[in-house]
Simulated scan of single mutants.
Amino acid sequence: MRRSVLLVIALCFASPSLAGETDLTLDRGIAATLSMPEGEGPFPAVLLLHGLGADRHEIGNIYVDSAEILAENGIASLRFDFRGFGKSSGDTGAFTLDRQNEDALIGLEALMSTKGVDPERIGTVGFSFGGGAAIELAAARPQTIKSVVVWSPVGDYVADMLDSLGQKAFDRAAEEGIVGLDLGWRTMALKKDFFDSLFAHDLLEALAAYPGPFMMINGEDDFYRQYVTPMMEAAAGTDKKALAIEGADHIYHVYTPSRSKAVEVIEATVQRFRETL
Rank of each mutant, 00 (worst) to 15 (best):
T114I: 06
A140C: 05
A200T: 15
I135W: 01
M161E: 05
F127K: 08
Q100Y: 05
D202F: 02
E205Q: 15
G116R: 09
D171W: 03
S113T: 12
A104M: 01
D163T: 12
F129V: 02
G177R: 08
S164K: 14
K192T: 14
T124G: 01
G177H: 07
V148N: 06
V148D: 07
E175T: 13
L203M: 14
A134Q: 06
R99H: 10
R172C: 08
F170E: 02
F127T: 11
E175W: 06
D182M: 03
G116V: 11
L198D: 06
F95A: 11
S197C: 10
V158R: 00
D103C: 04
E102G: 02
I178D: 09
F170Y: 05
G107P: 01
V158S: 00
A173T: 05
A189V: 13
I106W: 07
L204M: 13
K115I: 07
F127I: 04
T124W: 00
L162C: 04
K146L: 00
P142K: 06
L190R: 04
D163L: 13
G132H: 03
D103N: 09
E175A: 15
I178R: 14
K191F: 01
A134N: 07
A169V: 06
G166H: 12
V154H: 00
F170V: 00
E136Y: 03
P142F: 11
G132L: 04
